[in-house]
């Protein structure tokens, strides 16, 4: 039994139109996504804007309505509204992209971090403050600052306060939606290191959503590439980077700027070649609507969206 299993997840947003403003069509933000996760690992979900990567994360935690499909957490279907179980809401937490807007500016750090505790655990004022101080200590924010407000912190500190809130209930799975893309390089490093540290300490599982392949490569054991609501490729980090199969994956990887100026010309030509290949073989890799095909296994862990043979 997988730790988290997503089966044929679909999230459609209605498009209103016509004179009577009725739903005339749907945007298929997530269009049949399936994957499994094991505990303690980090899963990268990569895609460009509009690929549906954030919607997938938000749908799993229940922030978006699921059109169809199942999300099984420890074997239990948590998409069923009636049995919405409390344990799941406690075990799965989210870290948001923007540390400047995801913390309520009118609340003190104590209240921000204690919020999930207040929802799920009945603690006395004293216990609660102690827990918050412990949590701030874990994320390397001075425990003395519990009465400060978010604006008194830097971007990196705020993001760590967001993490403190996310780990307050000792969750098992954290969905991190572009957790460092609003941060400067040096602050990114701090947050990424820290996410790795608490992962081993708390045996956390991450679903790491990002557009930045460099960071995903650094953080993840397993990577999925998403394009227009569908998975185009899925595999171990090594497989994706060393042996990319889908033309879109190749293009994404070729687009990463190379930090060694000596490879400049080489990289420039390589990118050109990949783009040519992309244009030429576009029809082989995408259907008439420009969507990816079903995933097919090419090894135990590596799956690629290829057209049905024959």
């Amino acid at each position: 039994m997988a730790f988290l299993e997503v089966k044929d997840l679909q999230v459609y947003f209605p498009i209103k139109g016509g004179i009577l403003n009725r739903t005339v069509d749907h945007i298929k933000a997530v269009d049949g996504v399936s994957f499994e996760m094991e505990q303690g690992k980090t899963y990268g979900l990569v895609g460009e804007s509009g690929s549906g990567k954030s919607t997938t994360g938000r749908a799993i935690i229940g922030l978006e309505d699921i059109t169809s499909g199942q999300v099984l957490f420890n074997g239990k279907d948590i998409t069923d509204k009636k049995t919405k179980n409390k344990a799941f809401r406690k075990d799965v937490q989210m870290i948001f992209q923007d540390p400047y807007s995801s913390l309520n500016p009118r609340k003190r750090v104590l209240d921000i971090v204690a919020e999930p505790l207040r929802n799920f655990e009945k603690l006395s004022k004293k216990e609660e403050r102690k827990r918050v101080q412990e949590l701030l200590d874990i994320v390397n924010v001075s425990p003395d600052s519990i009465f400060k407000y978010p604006h008194e912190f830097s971007g990196g500190q705020r993001q760590r306060i967001g993490v403190a809130r996310a780990i307050a209930l000792k969750p098992k799975l954290i969905i991190a939606d572009e957790p460092v893309s609003a941060l400067d390089v040096s602050v990114q490093a701090q947050v990424l290191n820290f996410l790795k540290e608490i992962q081993s300490e708390l045996n956390l599982t991450y679903l790491f959503i990002s557009h930045d392949l460099g960071i995903v490569k650094h953080m993840c054991d397993n990577i999925s590439i998403m394009y227009k609501g569908r998975y185009v490729e899925q595999g171990s980090t090594e497989e994706i980077f060393e042996n990319p199969q889908h033309i879109y994956t190749k293009r994404l990887i070729a687009a990463i700027p190379d930090i060694n100026p000596k490879n400049r010309e080489e990289q420039f030509h390589y990118r050109k070649k990949v783009l040519e290949e992309y244009t030429q073989s576009y029809d082989d890799y995408f259907d008439q609507d420009g969507l990816a095909f079903q995933l097919q296994s090419i090894s135990d862990t590596h799956r690629v969206a290829l057209p049905q043979k024959g």
Binding site: V185, A189, N193, G214, I215, H218
Partner: peptide
């Protein structure tokens, strides 16, 4: 502090 090949911890 930028992730590169074979680096476990980034410099902060």
């Amino acid at each position: 502090s930028v992730p590169t090949e074979g680096q476990d911890r980034l410099h902060v």
